[in-house]
């Protein structure tokens, strides 16, 4: 086995980033197998039967029926031990961050995380995305994780494969943490993920009362309003409006960004937008690197005039 892709169960279906990880693994080349863990392992495997994979290995044991770091790290260790993949790949999700370093420590193999590209070496962003770095290793076995949208799930190669169940040997004393059911804190009636037009606000709005400008603009455009994390953390807008790695993933026809710097954790949630129009007073703001239209200026000056012009 050349590559083992560790899949993630997103409440019964395959996590979007797992599919992207398979696409990335296929691009690296060689024989690619996938590993599904937990009560939904068979269902996840079924989703992959039409893909070009060697096989899907399934592990279903009562100690890992739902996610826990102790159990998952040990299961992945045992599968790597037995199947000896050269490369282990996962999406760079919160879950991967939670347990994959433990696999790295257990097996003493390096984990290169958060890769955005494999051209010319494993590339990741460093120093708040101001620079990129290629990271390499001097050992034969490695673990990689791919940042959201580093590969497109549309580029997954079709084919066929089947599932094989893998027997793990887990001692009940292994799982030390007691995990409660996951829950959602607040849900709004706004469906950002299928919105066609989004006006999104960042800390560049400067004050809470200025946020109403974004709602006014959204109203004339027929758009929804979303926000960066600091705006949510300050309580200026509701948490369900947050876009980014800890918020929603959006892909509207227009993402109109107002005073957002373009930090990577924000960008992963909106870079799939068809058109990105950004206003920022800093000509060097990273958001401009992914914008189609970069308006250098003061949002507090431009937006009121824009609303006025649109209304007339």
């Amino acid at each position: 086995m050349d590559i083992l892709v560790v899949l993630e169960d997103n409440r019964g279906t395959l996590h979007r980033m797992s599919k992207e990880a398979i696409a990335g693994a296929q691009q690296i080349g060689g024989s690619v197998s996938a590993l599904a863990i937990g009560a939904n392992a068979d269902a996840l495997a079924t989703e992959l039967f039409t893909l070009d994979l060697t096989e899907v290995i399934t592990v279903n044991h009562e100690l890992v029926s739902s996610y826990n770091a102790d159990g998952y790290a040990e299961v992945v260790r045992q599968v790597i031990d037995s199947e000896s993949p050269k490369t282990v790949i996962a999406g760079h999700s919160y879950q991967t961050r939670d347990f994959m370093p433990r696999v790295s420590a257990k097996l003493d193999i390096p984990f290169i995380p958060d890769i955005i590209s494999i051209e010319g070496g494993y590339t990741k962003q460093v120093l708040n995305a101001k620079l990129n770095a290629t990271v390499n290793t001097n050992v034969d076995q490695i673990i990689l994780s791919f940042q959201s949208a580093a590969f497109s799930d549309e580029s997954v190669v079709s084919g066929s494969c089947s599932a094989r169940s893998f027997e793990v040997n887990l001692d009940p004393s292994l799982v030390r943490a007691e995990s409660e059911e996951p829950f959602q804190e607040s849900t709004g009636d706004v469906d950002l993920e299928s919105a066609e037009l989004i006006v999104s606000v960042g800390r560049g709005m400067e004050k809470e009362e200025n946020v109403s400008l974004a709602f006014d603009l959204a109203k004339v455009l027929g758009a929804e309003v979303s926000a960066s994390r600091p705006v949510v953390d300050s309580g200026w807008v509701e948490p369900f409006r947050q876009v980014g790695s800890s918020g929603h993933n959006v892909a509207p026809k227009l993402y109109f960004s107002l005073g957002i710097s373009g930090a990577i954790q924000h960008v992963v949630g909106m870079k799939g937008s068809k058109n990105i129009l950004a206003i920022n007073k800093d000509p060097e703001a990273p958001i401009f690197e992914i914008a189609d239209y970069a308006v250098v200026g003061d949002v507090l000056e431009i937006v009121p005039k824009l609303i006025e012009a649109l209304q007339s």
């Binding site: 990129n132 000509p283 992914i290 914008a291 012009a309």
Partner: peptide, 29 residues
């Protein structure tokens, strides 16, 4: 040491970005 930074570089943007500068009225138009 088993992993190391091989090369650090300034990211190249592949995207074609139209930059709009000037006063607020120009931007709005």
């Amino acid at each position: 040491q088993t992993q190391f930074m091989e090369k650090v570089f300034v990211p190249q943007t592949s995207k074609q970005t139209e930059v709009i500068e000037g006063d607020a009225d120009t931007a709005v138009a």
